[in-house]
Design a protein around this nucleic acid. Sequence first.
DNA 1: TTGAAAGCGTTACCAA
DNA 2: TTGGTAACGCTTTCAA
Lengths: 336, 336
Amino acid sequence: MAKRPTLADVAEEVGLSPAAVSYALRGERGADATVERVRAAAARLGYQADPIARALASGRTGSVAILCATLGDPWQRGLAADLARALRTRGRHALMADADGSATDETTLLGNLADQRPDGLLVTPLDPFTDRWREVAERLPTVAIGDRLSSAPAAGAVVYDNPRGMGLVLEMLADRGHRRIAVLLPQRPTTPDRPAEDFIAGEAERRGLELTIVHLPPPTSGDDSGSRRLRALLSAPHRPTAVFGLSDVFALDALRAARELGLTVPEDLSVVGFDDVDMADLVGPGLTTVNWGRSTVSETAVEMLLAGLDDPTAMTTRVIPPTLVLRGTTGPASLP
Amino acid sequence: MAKRPTLADVAEEVGLSPAAVSYALRGERGADATVERVRAAAARLGYQADPIARALASGRTGSVAILCATLGDPWQRGLAADLARALRTRGRHALMADADGSATDETTLLGNLADQRPDGLLVTPLDPFTDRWREVAERLPTVAIGDRLSSAPAAGAVVYDNPRGMGLVLEMLADRGHRRIAVLLPQRPTTPDRPAEDFIAGEAERRGLELTIVHLPPPTSGDDSGSRRLRALLSAPHRPTAVFGLSDVFALDALRAARELGLTVPEDLSVVGFDDVDMADLVGPGLTTVNWGRSTVSETAVEMLLAGLDDPTAMTTRVIPPTLVLRGTTGPASLP
DNA sequence: TTGAAAGCGTTACCAA
DNA sequence: TTGGTAACGCTTTCAA
């Protein structure tokens, strides 16, 4: 059980003080010759700085916390993986936590993560309206993905251009003759404002569409109230001819419900998602979605956060444009 | 920017030594009255122990490293999420890294993660045969998922009962009249032994099946040699009537290739996967798979690791039994 | 340019 | 049972 070498060991080896070695290894100071000699000795001994001691002394950990709203959602799982990868290629590592759809858990985890003293925070907020974000963002450089943190002006944001995305979808559906459309939205913990809901309602009215809005619980295991609601929706006498899930999981749930009810997609029912999860092309006849470019989103967020570590003005709001990907689950309207 | 209170602050507040406070807060020692008084003071000041200082002093971080072979694989993504969740419910947090299909990256990341001084390691090994695992497992309690680490007897393992799983699939296919079957296996970095390959070859021979084994690169973005090979396989004159992907992603790739070639599933071709990813029921007509119970796997692995932290004998090998889930991508053989 | 020494906030050892 | 005191391994300020 050979103990790993410490700074002191290296210092002794080269006959310098620990301080000198610390500086040399980080290239902060240096008679070039000394630096070289120190480097060599460190390599020879297999010295690696202890990140914990370093963090305690310097106050910086080199880690970035990722707080996910729901890893139950495949899109978010992919995003989390992409974020972790983007961080790693920039020499940082990820500390990951999953609120699993619970706003209270989100608050708790936020505390836990902050206690780990990460250098920054990436978050897909479940409840973007709580005041908690303000205090956190003041201490901890923060970038939110998907929703601006309304109480935290210091935080950066990478948001999807939802209005354009929703517009694209409604336009496409209207063009194909759909008039009765159901929109599946996530239940939000708070209700101070509902820009998405308001926007889509307005947009639908402008186009003369009849909209049903259904709120579904987050895709957590063990709550099937969502699928019950979907079955009710789709078996009603005056049922919609198209379902638009503002998250692919909701669209997938709609596909399941349709199958259970014996409805054929897209003949009896058109289905549209909103995230373009990895397997969307293979789902049923291929799920129509809005694609946001997951890797662009994650790269943008990580770039912004790392830039914001030194320079607070780098924290801004970046808007990601949508692309409509039309696949087989969407056809012309067939019912009267 | 109020500095957060330290142990010393609490100690001063209650007129005790930092040591006494530390013990009291952890409930290690205690005149009940004092403990209560200390607790109250800590709460009043909003004191929270600094995990970094704690880690430096105690040598334990409370974190567990998760090293994933390929987060590009949806099954692994789900597994990683489940592992993180399982850790969190037990008061620990996850440090996650993704080798993204590269065995060299796996080695590098292993070093990086170990430098973070986690208390334990959970790994889905890409290359279970390298000697690196031995040295790691000696210092760091380790549980491997999916493959035993052959060089590290100290490490625990949670493995899938692949023989039984493969047996179930071959039996089912044979029963339905399939004689020419292609098996899609991952390219492994090393080739000291290939138990899976040998086993399945033997099993096929026993049943009089004609087997084609195809090795595919890991599901990383940016390598399309796999899909080329699949198209070649499926357009050959004497092509297989069934494809068995030893990982759902391979089966999904096969579905894509079949679609591109105009083959109908399951009429022209049956497809079977091996992991039961979340959306398998919705993919095409529903992908036939072997299901290992992802949450069982992750709970088992985490349990074993945490038990092994105190008690090395808890590290054993647990074998997960398979369940065959028959869905629409599999039918009777149709070609001569 | 270098080195000595003082932290960083905790836990653990050892007397009392 | 309790409370000093010495680590833990590094960074950083301040003199030399």
